[in-house]
Design a protein around this nucleic acid. Structure first.
Lengths: 105, 105
DNA sequence: TATATTTGGACTAAAGTTGTCCAAAATGGG
DNA sequence: CCCATTTTGGACAACTTTAGTCCAAATATA
């Protein structure tokens, strides 16, 4: 899976590959058409349940889609203001590692 | 700077090393004592302005404190639910890299 | 024991988020 | 070009979250 795209781009591509309309997919997932459009444009966040439904609908990995979304969130958070993105991510990794070791001791 | 601790732990340690009370520091920074206590316990978020003031007050790097705080946020975000933390961070790095290349082209 | 410090609950105001509805804009087939 | 359909995004109300303050209980200190 190509993670360079955003979550929205990813699900939009899945839909367009199958030549389906927003309305068609939205009905299948039982959500508002406009909502689906916004999620594709990353202007509304998918719920966990949405990610489950859409991954099932397109037969793609639920986990991959979730990671795609969560990483978008992290990127968004980390790219504001001053750009210490790399350092912030590096330190975050260290902290995650540290916390893991804590737990298992 | 040891980034294994949380932002709250870090500023608490700075205060205790100088044997200052919450009230003393809070007054110097012109914020509520209780607020400072909560920030030390990571139950309230520091504002950008708070980080600037406290780093100046203790003569430590503003940037380091900011990174400490931002990385806490990322860790918090990434450690919920299923734990794909490593993968999410890795993908986030790739996306940041990707976005950087986009901009400079 | 008396005094100061730390902790956290409760609350209000402000800010942010969600999902829905609707209409304008864009697209595409005939 | 026209019409039907799709896409896009604004506006809104309901709801959730967060921020900051005040206060009192708990804890530490001298």
């Amino acid at each position: 899976m190509g993670f360079e795209r955003t979550f929205g781009d990813t699900i939009k591509k899945l839909r367009e590959e199958k030549k389906l309309t927003l309305r068609t997919v939205a009905e299948a997932l039982e959500i508002d058409t406009s909502m689906l459009g916004k999620i594709e444009k990353n202007s509304r966040k998918p719920t966990k349940s949405f990610i489950e439904k859409i991954s099932k609908y397109f037969s793609v990995s639920d986990k991959d889609l979730l990671i795609s979304f969560l990483s978008d969130e992290v990127v968004y958070q980390v790219l504001g203001d001053e750009d210490y993105a790399d350092q912030v991510l590096k330190v975050a990794e260290e902290k995650v590692e540290y916390i893991r070791n804590q737990k298992s001791s």
